[in-house]
Amino acid sequence: MGERYDCTKCKESLYGQKYILTEEQPYCVKCYEALFSSNCEVCQLLIGCTGKDLSYKDRHWHGDCFLCTKCDRSLVDRPFATMDDTLMCTDCYSNEYSAKCHACLKTIMPGSKKMEHKGNSWHENCFTCNRCQQPIGTKSFVQKDFSNYCIPCYEKQFAQQCVHCKAPITTGGVNYREQPWHKECFVCIGCKQQLAGQRFTSRDDFAYCLDCFCNLFAKKCASCTTPISGLGGSKYISFAQRQWHNDCFNCKRCCVSLVGRGFLTCKEDILCPDCGKDF
């Protein structure tokens, strides 16, 4: 008697019967479907071994059940998209969920390249400079009055020119005497320190930091010889073409403050009345 050829599961003879060979093990159709076939996501019926099993992310469908949930069009051999485990053709998905181009107002199809900025989206070819109409792509741009401009066009059309270097001011800047400056161009005429955000003063239309202004133009204290700026409300004493800081206007001999008091002079020195009696 010849060797038997039986189903691996139920041991029934497979001679003259249909069977499926899986990993070199034979199974009758009934056992194979019970062990290996899946139920359809839509109709919940078994997908038989003779039927078409369409699978996506461990989910299975009959060929006739693999349809767009919006328009019922077959998705067999067609591109599709999913949202919350729901199957849709790309047209329905786009109408339902895809962004609309801010320029042409048409849907931006899934998978196509798009540009995004501040919550708006564009087709790549629609994201263009409002002035030269050239695609901006990944280049730098400026948005003004809800329109986008490449940097060269923005500078030509809108940017002010620095009164010092004549180049466009695209970010920030300083307005001094109703004229625009780059921050890096608005510097002390003496030490070249940037003055933006700092206290400064001017003379003969030139801007100076306080240190340079005091060193160049301020009167010197007759006592400590350092400049008396007179800026910011600082007080000083002036007498006979000489000036003193308030804190320096003291009796040369006893060092008492003479601010608001009578005093005497002896050559270059100032003395309180008591010390002046001895001279």
Rank of each mutant, 00 (worst) to 15 (best):
3 E>N: 06
6 D>E: 15
9 K>Q: 12
10 C>P: 09
11 K>P: 05
11 K>D: 06
15 Y>T: 13
17 Q>C: 13
19 Y>C: 11
22 T>I: 08
24 E>H: 06
25 Q>E: 11
28 C>Q: 04
29 V>D: 07
29 V>C: 08
29 V>E: 08
29 V>G: 10
30 K>S: 15
32 Y>F: 15
34 A>F: 07
34 A>Y: 02
35 L>C: 12
37 S>V: 00
39 N>D: 06
40 C>P: 04
41 E>A: 06
43 C>M: 03
43 C>Q: 12
47 I>S: 09
54 L>V: 08
59 R>Q: 14
64 D>E: 08
64 D>H: 04
66 F>P: 13
67 L>P: 00
70 K>I: 12
71 C>S: 03
72 D>P: 03
73 R>V: 15
73 R>G: 05
75 L>W: 04
78 R>H: 07
80 F>G: 09
81 A>E: 01
82 T>H: 01
83 M>E: 11
84 D>A: 14
85 D>S: 09
87 L>E: 05
91 D>Y: 14
95 N>Y: 03
96 E>M: 09
96 E>T: 12
97 Y>S: 09
99 A>M: 10
100 K>G: 03
100 K>D: 06
102 H>K: 05
104 C>E: 05
104 C>F: 01
106 K>I: 04
108 I>V: 13
113 K>S: 14
114 K>S: 11
115 M>S: 10
116 E>V: 04
116 E>F: 06
117 H>W: 13
119 G>T: 05
119 G>L: 09
119 G>Q: 06
120 N>M: 11
122 W>R: 05
124 E>F: 00
127 F>A: 06
129 C>R: 03
133 Q>T: 08
144 K>I: 03
147 S>A: 15
151 I>M: 14
151 I>G: 11
154 Y>M: 01
155 E>N: 11
155 E>I: 01
155 E>L: 07
157 Q>Y: 01
161 Q>P: 02
163 V>P: 01
164 H>A: 13
167 A>N: 15
167 A>D: 03
170 T>V: 07
171 T>F: 13
175 N>M: 13
175 N>D: 04
175 N>H: 02
176 Y>F: 08
177 R>M: 09
180 P>A: 13
182 H>P: 05
183 K>G: 12
183 K>E: 10
184 E>P: 00
185 C>I: 00
185 C>K: 03
185 C>R: 01
186 F>V: 02
187 V>R: 09
188 C>V: 11
189 I>H: 13
196 A>Q: 02
197 G>M: 11
201 T>F: 00
202 S>T: 08
203 R>W: 06
208 Y>A: 04
208 Y>H: 07
209 C>Q: 00
215 N>F: 05
218 A>H: 06
221 C>L: 04
221 C>Y: 03
222 A>G: 10
225 T>S: 08
228 I>N: 02
228 I>Y: 01
235 K>F: 02
237 I>V: 15
239 F>W: 09
239 F>E: 09
240 A>P: 01
242 R>S: 12
243 Q>H: 13
243 Q>A: 11
246 N>E: 14
247 D>L: 06
248 C>F: 05
249 F>K: 06
254 C>G: 15
255 C>R: 12
256 V>H: 01
257 S>T: 08
259 V>C: 15
261 R>G: 14
266 C>Q: 13
269 D>M: 04
270 I>S: 02
273 P>K: 04
279 F>S: 14
279 F>Q: 11
279 F>A: 10
